[in-house]
Design a binder for these strands. Structure first.
Lengths: 217, 217
DNA sequence: GTTTGTGAAGGATTTCACAGCA
DNA sequence: TGCTGTGAAATCCTTCACAAAC
């Protein structure tokens, strides 16, 4: 088992607002930044200035998970980063399967940002027989029929979907059937999934489309 | 001037919640999907089923912008899509400048998803002199010193940042100084910008990092 | 009969403001 | 003195529920 529960933080995920969980990685990132700049202690005020949010929100967010600061001083940068990483499960490796090895899939496979953060792509799949068997970096492209057994064998907890929009819902269905509960979706669709499955979309066009509203108005 | 204000919708962007604006592109996308499936009329119930949200929320969201439906029937798919596109400014072209022509920048330049949605990358920049002058697709890589005049000349309204994290804040500062108020940021940082500038991050790692919380807890 | 549009209610999130601790 | 942690207040967002429209 790659991912061991850390007994030091037993958090009821139900009791923490989802928005708060989504901000946690941001805190980790900024803390790492300050740590590598040699800063050892930081206040919620300073964190807030860098993240463009109020100090009160940062303190309240952190209060869902514990008491990490020292009154009159602030937070120990290294310690807080470590604690938050542990809470998020970022202190262990997470295996991911990549589905769709076209142009986008190969770009994602080659993206160097996953590995250092503990995310490892351990399998690659494509529906196209002509791609199956080919090597993409260290991975051999597999047929989708092998999804179920590979998810089990390689302890895949995350699915990364880089297939064309027309096939994305079906591929996501297959991932869900294979037991994957966390999906990173690059396809420009809003997939329908059971309530216990989490989908995060990565979609530059969607991001641009909401900005034009403000450019125009 | 590429982007003409559409006089049919005069919306006070202050009065519309930001979350609502961010859902609008999703509605457009689903409506296009239904339109190309030949469906002409759709209820908020059906839309909600596909987007996994309540019909009431969809109706309330739309009510910020007008009255698009017919009681007892629902919404005309084509008409609603057109109206929403107009409200978002998606009925005109938007020019973007891409800064950072390394691996990621070239992948973004080659991404075929922007063009069909009306986003056009009209300039490419890099700080590295060895890249300046090279051609990437139809673009000639320019020096960053030319940013200001090029933004003006080519009516660039959007900056797309694909430089390494260490340079991203400085590049974003330059974009802001050049008058760009909408930025799509691929760099893994949380940049500080003036209040009238909008930044949307595209960050697969951040998305993954909040999902692991739920995998673990 | 069906479904919209919308005030009002309810729930969630953010901010305030201050007691308590270093 | 300076800053955290946190109840209470304020704000923001979602859902309810129903009159009006087709």
């Amino acid at each position: 088992m790659v991912n061991s529960d850390n007994p030091t933080d037993g958090i009821d995920s139900e009791s923490v607002p989802e928005v708060v969980v989504q901000r946690l990685p941001l805190y980790v990132r900024v803390l790492s930044h300050f740590a590598s700049a040699g800063i050892e202690v930081i206040s919620s005020e300073q964190l807030g200035a860098h993240l463009q949010m109020t100090p009160a929100q940062i303190r309240k967010d952190l209060s869902y998970f514990g008491r990490f600061g020292k009154q009159g001083r602030g937070y120990d940068v290294g310690n807080l980063a470590t604690r938050l990483r542990s809470i998020l499960g970022l202190d262990s490796q997470w295996n991911a399967g990549l589905i769709g090895m076209g142009r986008l899939g190969r770009a994602v496979a080659a993206y160097p940002g996953f590995q250092p953060e503990g995310f490892r792509i351990v399998a690659a799949f494509d529906a196209d027989d002509r791609l199956v068997g080919h090597e993409v970096g260290p991975l051999r492209v597999q047929a989708l029929a092998e999804l179920n057994e590979t998810v089990e064998e390689r302890d895949i907890k995350i699915g990364i979907v880089t297939v064309p929009a027309a096939h994305a819902q079906e591929v996501i269905n297959q991932l869900v059937r294979a037991g994957v509960r966390s999906i990173l979706n690059y396809a420009p669709i809003a997939p329908v999934v059971p309530p216990d499955v989490r989908v995060q979309g990565v979609d530059p066009v969607l991001a641009l489309q909401s900005m034009t509203f403000y450019l125009k108005n």
